[in-house]
């Protein structure tokens, strides 16, 4: 039963993802784009969960890894013939670099992992509020470096002409890969050790667990997945600016994780699908939609307000998140023996 349940914890969420994607493919091109966006956002949130959910340490800096992944994949795959003239200050080897889609996604993951490992060495010695503030500092520093160092990026300009290759297949498979790695990690000995440090750091240390090392492993893996998701993100839009991978995305993805339930991958997925799906639905409502004989029409600009109110209500009524921080339970109830 345990093994079956373990399979179900990954299979159930995966079936939901496939179902959402399958329904999405039957819709109009505009809605198809919105659904692909939901899937990519979910990949970012699951990558965030790998560290935050398993370690219990809040990170405000994970969008830094999304950013470096997105810019690495975008710069590496944008046409080499345009970059030297559009970005004259860019390092020649970057300006002349042009690689394919899959290679750019792997590069994004690699860059995200290396960067997370590097900043994680000092940061993972911190806990609680100090860790949160330090990761936020990483976000600010990363943003400023990418925005102002024109040798390695487009600076204040938008990086354009990135091949928009994140179609349904890539968005779905990409999310499933991120989920599989996230779930595999949380079931592994490293994942269990990290969760032990989350529950009681002193007891974990007394049992021989090195908190710093376990957190660093999770931070690096999480950075790799965030970088990969950043690659999917830039290939979804076909362009990227530093503002798109900064504060808004940080707080929205954290809110998704909290709303879904911070302690499980299922929670991360549900939070992402719920908030991002709701957001897409409200966008359509603002345009005006016909439901049966009635037309529903939200005033322009009320989307964010509505989202905020709904998130507030969810957090007040379900402080542990929609899933209570638990994995998806087995759908068939077993009869208890008396």
């Amino acid at each position: 039963m345990r093994r079956r349940l373990a399979v179900w914890h990954l299979l159930g969420p995966s079936l939901l993802v496939v179902a959402v994607a399958a329904v999405g493919t039957t819709t109009s091109p505009t809605i198809q784009f919105q659904v692909r966006s939901v899937l990519v956002t979910a990949a970012i949130v699951v990558s965030l969960y790998v560290f935050v959910g398993n370690s219990g340490v809040i990170s405000f800096g994970h969008v830094s890894f999304v950013a470096v992944g997105a810019f690495a994949a975008g710069i590496a795959s944008a046409p080499a013939e345009v970059k030297p003239s559009t970005f004259p200050k860019m390092l020649p080897f970057l300006a002349n670099l042009e690689i394919g889609n899959v290679e750019s996604l792997l590069l994004a993951a690699l860059v995200g992992a290396i960067y997370a490992f590097w900043v994680g060495i000092p940061l993972m010695r911190l806990s609680g509020l100090s860790a949160g503030i330090a990761t936020f500092a990483v976000l600010i520093i990363t943003h400023n470096v990418i925005r102002n160092w024109e040798a390695i990026g487009p600076g204040a300009k938008t990086l354009a002409l990135v091949p928009p290759t994140t179609g349904f297949l890539q968005a779905t498979v990409g999310l499933l890969i991120v989920m599989a790695i996230a779930y595999g990690y949380q079931r592994s000995r490293w994942g269990r050790r990290l969760r032990a440090t989350r529950e009681d750091p002193l007891a974990a240390q007394a049992s021989g667990i090195e908190v710093h090392r376990e957190r660093l492993i999770a931070f690096t893996l999480s950075g790799a997945l965030a970088g990969f998701a950043g690659g999917l993100f830039v290939h979804l839009l076909g362009s990227i600016t530093t503002e798109q991978v900064f504060l808004d995305l940080t707080f929205v993805t954290l809110a998704m994780l909290v709303v879904g339930g911070i302690g499980s991958m299922w929670g991360a997925l549900i939070g992402a699908l719920f908030i991002a799906g709701l957001n897409a639905f409200l966008v359509e409502l603002e345009k005006g939609v016909v439901l049966g004989a009635r037309e529903l029409d939200l005033p322009s600009g009320t989307r964010l307000l509505t989202l905020g109110v709904i998130m507030f209500v969810v957090l007040v009524t379900r402080p542990e998140g929609l899933t209570g921080g638990r994995e998806l339970s087995w759908p068939i109830r077993r009869r208890r023996r008396v």
């Binding site: 999405g24 659904v35 799906g277 359509e284 345009k287 016909v290």
Partner: peptide, 21 residues
């Protein structure tokens, strides 16, 4: 289970269960 159905319904609705006016 209700939650699962709800989230799925929401995504389906966002996916075009409604027709743009």
């Amino acid at each position: 289970l209700t939650l699962l159905i709800g989230v799925f319904a929401l995504v389906v609705a966002a996916c075009g269960g409604a027709e743009t006016a």
